[in-house]
Simulated assay, not measured.
Amino acid sequence: MIVDAHHHVWTADYPWLAAPGLEPLRRDYTLGDLAPSLAEAGVTATVLVEAGRCDSAETAEFLALAAGTPWIAGVVGWASLTDPALTATLAGYRALPGGAKLVGVRDQVQAVTDPDHLARSDVRAALTAVGAAGLTVDLIVHVGQLPGCAEAARATPGTTFVLDHLGKPPVAAGAHARWRAAIAPLAACPNVVAKLSGLLTEGGPGSGPDTIRPYVDTALELFGPERLMLGSDWPVCELVTTYAGALAALDACLAELSPHERSAVRAGTAIRTYALEVGS
């Protein structure tokens, strides 16, 4: 079984798509575009993740999509960690069509310039509230924010955090040691799991299994297979490879694991962390 724990869909009018180098992604990406690739790769179920519009209406749309799509097992929607009405926002999401498939929320913390953002009292209260609602907090951050993530995770042990893209390591720059030092304290927190996703994109054109293997190996060492899950990061991955290519590169990096360990990374961790209802 394979669970793709991180993919998107979007329309081409997302403001962030205007950034240089993202020209190939400036089109609509739909579930219809993705479905053939899932079948080709043998993917059983997926988690649809908010795509940076930072709009509650997008989360409502994604939940509706999930309601009509059996293979979408969960949705990570958008929510602001500074929303004073966050608890009501989460309850509102759950009352929508598809609301039962809401498994987590994500704020675009990577865009925040305040280095103490995750230490703010209102943000810490929000992190606690998400955990109390039985949802995960997905962390989309850069390497410089990883120490703050570790502090927040230690301060809110009742909340499960999911680190997207291993914290965006500087693969292209080869700065493995700096990234390892930053992520190790976060990996030491038992309430944190991480996604093997987005690594080829961080490596840039021409990246393959050998490019990302040091980062995957370090993640396996620090987190262990039981706290790692794989994700395609489609369609962002199409900047450097196909959907099948993204999963194949990760699979190559997992080749030396035992069958049980590979099963955890390929499906088990995502199913357990997000409480997904996925067939055997």
Rank of each mutant, 00 (worst) to 15 (best):
H7Q: 15
L222D: 02
D210N: 04
H7W: 04
V47N: 05
A66E: 13
R53V: 03
A79Q: 14
A41L: 07
V9N: 03
T89Y: 09
S258I: 09
V9I: 15
W234D: 09
G148F: 12
W78H: 13
D107A: 14
H117M: 03
E221T: 15
E261W: 08
T128E: 15
G148C: 08
E58M: 10
E151K: 07
V109P: 00
P209W: 11
K168Y: 05
H117P: 00
P214R: 11
G92R: 14
Y14P: 01
L48V: 09
A66F: 01
V76G: 13
T211M: 10
V162F: 09
I271K: 03
E61Q: 11
T89P: 06
R120H: 13
L200Q: 10
H165L: 02
T211A: 13
G144L: 12
L90C: 05
C54Q: 11
G92N: 12
E226I: 02
E238P: 00
V137T: 06
E277I: 01
L196V: 12
D55V: 04
H260Q: 12
D107R: 14
L199Q: 03
L22T: 06
P205Q: 14
L81Y: 11
T11N: 05
G268Q: 09
E50R: 01
E23H: 02
A64P: 03
A126T: 04
T82P: 06
V9P: 07
S258D: 14
E221C: 01
Y243H: 14
V103W: 07
A270T: 06
R53Y: 03
A132T: 10
D233R: 04
L200T: 09
A155I: 00
G279C: 02
L102H: 06
P97G: 10
L96W: 05
D4R: 05
L102K: 05
T160S: 03
S56R: 15
A152K: 00
